[in-house]
């Protein structure tokens, strides 16, 4: 799937400026940048939540799903986990029993017990909620999954588990992903390709080790410089 010359304008302000980005099948493309650099706007454009110019080629734009940053806001508090996950199965028109089996399968994909289906989001931890949101998105059989800062609102102790899940989904399902984060260390850990965004534009794209190991852009270098490291004083 290729995002081609995508531009988003809000009035006179250009939030995303002529972005072209290829997401190879089965690859995780990481997108880093500071807050306000246009990462989330790009994500919302790609998933059709904000109008844009430009296009998406090489795939069905309707089969792009997104997982949001805040797991406390992305699940309807009045819906059970099972009902929320089943929302992703809308298009399949499954009979009741098959739908329930599919919900269980999706929950097990994200390593949640089937018994959670009857629970409400308030009974779940942040990490569990984020898994539910991922399961819901997977139900729609996406060609591309956009993950917008999905670990930023999580505690460090559960962030690791969610990152492991992201990688295992890629390995087991061959899922393509646009993985957005302001944390370069997190992006480096999960991505095959890293794209760096600055003031609405992509300033550098390349294989992860190259971008992280020998950045060519000044802005990328300053981002790398700024990352806090344990034991560096």
């Amino acid at each position: 799937m290729i995002i081609k010359n995508l531009t988003v304008r809000f009035g006179t302000f250009t939030a995303v400026d002529d972005v072209t980005l290829e997401i190879p099948a089965g690859a995780i493309v990481g997108l880093v940048g500071e807050s306000g650099s246009g990462k989330s706007t790009l994500a919302r454009a790609v998933t059709g939540l904000v109008p844009y110019t430009g296009g998406i080629v090489g795939g069905d734009p309707r089969r792009i799903q997104m997982v949001f940053q805040d797991p406390y806001a992305s699940l309807d508090p009045r819906m059970t986990v099972g009902t929320s996950v089943a929302e992703g199965l809308q298009g399949l028109r499954l009979p009741r029993a098959a739908r329930q089996a599919e919900v269980e399968r999706l929950l097990s994909l994200v390593s949640l017990p089937a018994s959670l289906a009857g629970r409400y989001p308030r009974e779940l931890s942040g990490g569990q909620r984020q898994r539910v949101a991922i399961a819901r998105a997977l139900g729609a059989r996406p060609e591309l999954l956009v993950a917008d800062e999905i670990t930023s609102a999580l505690d460090v102790s559960v962030q690791g588990a969610v990152l492991n899940l992201v990688r295992s989904l890629r390995e087991e399902l061959g899922l393509s992903m646009l993985f957005i984060s302001h944390n370069l260390a997190v992006v480096r850990y999960v991505s095959d390709v890293v794209a760096v965004m600055h003031q609405g534009r992509l300033v550098e794209i390349g294989p992860t080790e190259e971008v992280v190991g020998s950045p060519t852009d000044d802005y990328t270098r300053s981002l790398l410089e700024a990352i806090p490291r344990l034991g560096r004083t």
Binding site: V158, Q159, G160, A161, N164, A185, I227, L230
Partner: peptide
């Protein structure tokens, strides 16, 4: 906590520790 935190030197071929 330390093991579950990816940094710029984390081995990408291994799963992260989690609690």
């Amino acid at each position: 906590l330390i093991a579950s935190l990816p940094d710029m030197d984390t081995d990408r071929s291994l799963p992260l520790a989690s609690i």
